[in-house]
Design a protein around this nucleic acid. Structure first.
Length: 686
DNA sequence: GAGCCTCGAGTTCC
DNA sequence: CTCGAGGCTC
């Protein structure tokens, strides 16, 4: 449905219009389901999605005969559309760290020199190439044949878009003289002229117009029907590789040459540079050509040329140490700051948000921007009524860059952070010494926090109840249908009342209740995460679940741990066994332990937990045990520098063998792995 | 005690 | 995505 198109109410539709509309809505809903569940990248807000669903249901209720004939309609909302198959990348697709000025580029090259301990006169060859604003893809060739292509996804798991990639002329289907296994990586993009032509055609046919070439390429690549992709003129620049059975070159530049020999397109502006000055000159040259290039770029990427150096440099978190993206300055726009509102998060954090006169930045209309916290507001000196400069950080999230003070209206006053929570209780706001955030002091009692906690409870990484999004939680809360998590599982007692609610029919209520029933059985880790304890996110919840095994054991341990030092004076009290066990878990320190203890010290928390215990079937955390491993069920401590792999890798490997990894030695410790002793490394190399 | 890395929390837009 | 903070290593 295109915006602005007049929507008729279901009563005014004739049967033909109804059929057409239902078909379109079903397709649209299926697409958003896929974006939301499959791609984890929703295109519309939950509210807009709900509106689509409601409109579909309203029309379907009035024309049941048509609704029945539409196969997908029956399953709308019940199951996400099939979409694309998942592909696990054999080697993760990394992201790049960014540089925004010459100084950061110099620092990047210096870091490399230090890391490699290079002599001052030894040059570091780096390949500079434009950073194409498209979508990265991985192409797998086996014995010279293109067998599978995937999107980047989250870097670890992408989607199988082989059929659509096969329609791209720049992607050869056969390679001569290629290694047996060869995974080529590069960027799928649309040229500016093809983009303009596509949009004209879309407009002429009344279809959706794309905001920019990148979105058009994304939309085209994600077509389930690859005959549509064929008609879109997509292109591909190759620039990197993933898994290879034998390394075909010793340098980045040499590899690019091979890519050309195999028939790939590589970017013609790519150059090998020897010094930072050369890199920056190349950057300036590419920046100058930017407007006249036939495709969009958003910066220049620098990569260490020698592959043996790339190997040595390795990576930092999820980005290689041997490459960086020198980004062009983000597009900026001026607008008026109309108001500063305060939002309350689930932990009570009060976040100021700038309400802006809507303005287009980078092809997107922006009307809100976060101001993070009190310090940020003060640092930027923003006042209501100011004209401010906006940009989209990383081309995504809008931020206020600065105030144009010359345009400040007379009589404006500095922003005063409110002293009380905007909720009905007007609880005084607390700012803990040394912390940046201000929090509502109301804790569990604050109604805003309560709603946010419920939203967190049903969120995607927690209970993920379909049909129970933020909007519904808000509405059910206001009507007192859901005031605590356990109420969700008693919602079916209000079935009749629900069906009378505006926007809710027989079908949608049935679907919702079915979705809720489907979540009655849940893993302990998700259960812990859903509780929304401060500092306990997905990773920590998993850690706790795997260490304590059952809800009961965890609760008992947390209550026991809380019996230490009620005055909080740790220096005089030895931690009890329960607390020292907790602190012995790798990644859990005193701060996280205190928040856990504080949670269980609340009467209300205990009620919520036992209520859920009655309603739910909580599955003990499934440890993927390789039963015959010598470390299964044992507690292992790593210390010192490991020779063959990083600490985190060793930890992951040991855990995959069923071991628990602790941070320090205690009486429960079975093995201590020190350095690279051969007798110990056998645990890491099964 | 400094510096690195991971995790948590909050946010925006289509 | 970005920032801040906690936890760990050196």
């Amino acid at each position: 449905m295109s915006a602005g198109q007049q929507e008729k109410s279901p009563e005014d539709l004739n049967i033909f219009e109804a059929e057409e509309t239902l078909r379109a809505l079903a397709a649209e809903i299926a697409r958003h389901d896929e974006l939301y569940h499959g791609k984890d990248d929703p295109e519309i807000s939950d509210a807009d999605y709900d509106a689509l669903r409601r409109r579909f249901d309203a029309i379907a209720d009035r024309f049941p005969s048509i609704a029945r004939t539409l196969a997908p309609s029956a399953s709308v909302g019940a199951a996400p559309s099939a979409g694309f198959a998942k592909v696990t990348h054999s080697r993760p697709m990394l992201s790049l760290s960014n540089a925004f000025d010459g100084e950061e580029v110099t620092e990047f090259v210096n870091r490399i020199r230090r890391f490699l301990s290079l002599a001052a006169d030894e040059p570091v060859g780096l390949v500079a190439e434009p950073k194409i604003d498209g979508l990265s893809a991985a192409l797998r060739y086996e014995n010279g044949r293109f067998i599978q292509g995937a999107t980047r996804g989250d870097g670890t798991v992408g989607e199988d878009i082989t059929r659509n990639l096969r329609t791209i002329d720049d992607i050869p289907t056969r390679l001569e003289n290629a290694p047996a296994v060869l995974e080529i990586r590069g960027e799928v993009y649309m040229r500016k002229d093809d983009f303009r032509a596509l949009n004209q055609a879309q407009e002429a046919s009344g279809a959706k117009v794309f905001a920019n070439p990148r979105n058009a390429a994304a939309g085209s690549l994600r077509q389930l029907d690859s005959s549509i992709t064929t008609r879109r003129k997509l292109r591909f620049f190759a620039y990197s590789w993933g898994e290879v059975s034998e390394r075909p070159s010793d340098t980045q530049a040499g590899f690019l040459e091979l890519l050309r020999d195999w028939g790939f397109q590589t970017n013609p502006l790519t150059r090998l540079c020897g010094t930072v000055d050369e890199l920056l000159a190349r950057y300036a040259s590419i920046a100058e050509q930017r407007a006249t290039l036939p495709y969009d770029i958003d910066g220049v990427v620098y990569k260490v040329n020698r592959l043996d150096w790339q190997d040595r440099l390795g990576m930092v978190s999820r980005a290689p140490r041997w490459a960086i993206a020198h980004k062009f300055p983000a597009e900026q726009a001026e607008t008026i700051l109309k108001a500063i509102d305060i939002q309350v998060g689930r932990t009570g954090a009060l976040t100021p948000v700038a309400r802006l006169e809507p303005v287009t930045v980078g092809g997107v209309v922006v009307s809100n921007a976060t101001l993070h916290n009190e310090d940020e507001v003060r640092r930027k000196g923003v006042r209501v009524g100011d004209t401010v400069v906006i940009q989209r950080a990383g081309d995504v999230i809008p931020q206020v860059v600065r105030v144009i003070e010359d345009k400040r209206p007379a009589g404006s006053v500095p922003y005063e952070f409110p002293a009380v929570c905007p909720c009905a209780l007007k609880t005084p706001v607390i700012r803990i010494e040394g912390e940046a955030v201000r929090r509502c002091g109301g804790g569990l009692a604050c109604p805003f926090q309560a709603v946010e906690r419920l939203k967190h409870f049903v969120s995607r990484d927690a209970f993920d109840i379909e049909g129970l999004g933020e909007k519904q939680i808000q509405a059910f809360w206001e009507d007192k249908l859901i005031t605590q998590p356990g109420d969700i599982f008693r919602l079916k007692e209000h079935e009749a009342a629900l069906k009378k609610r505006e926007g809710w029919g027989e079908k949608s209520v049935d679907n919702l209740l079915a979705a809720i029933e489907g979540r009655r059985s849940i893993g302990l880790d998700k259960m812990i995460y859903a509780l929304g304890i401060r500092q306990v996110g997905q990773a920590t919840a998993r850690l706790l679940a795997s260490n304590y095994g059952t809800l009961g054991a965890w609760r008992t341990a947390m209550l026991e741990a809380g019996k230490t030092a009620p005055d909080g004076d740790e220096s005089t009290d030895m931690p009890n066994d329960a607390l020292s066990d907790l602190l012995n878990i790798d990644q859990i320190g005193m701060s996280v332990a205190n928040d856990l203890i504080a949670f269980f010290a609340e009467e209300q928390s205990l009620r919520i937990v036992s209520d859920l215990e009655n309603e739910l079937d909580i599955q003990p955390f499934a440890v993927p045990v390789a039963g015959d491993s010598p470390v299964a069920g044992k507690t292992v401590v790593f210390t010192g520098t490991l020779a063959t792999m990083g600490r985190s890798e060793a930890k992951a490997r040991a855990e995959s063998l069923g071991a628990k990894v602790a941070g320090s030695v205690s009486k429960k410790t079975d093995y201590v792995i020190v350095g690279a002793r051969p007798s110990s490394t056998r645990f890491c190399n099964p």
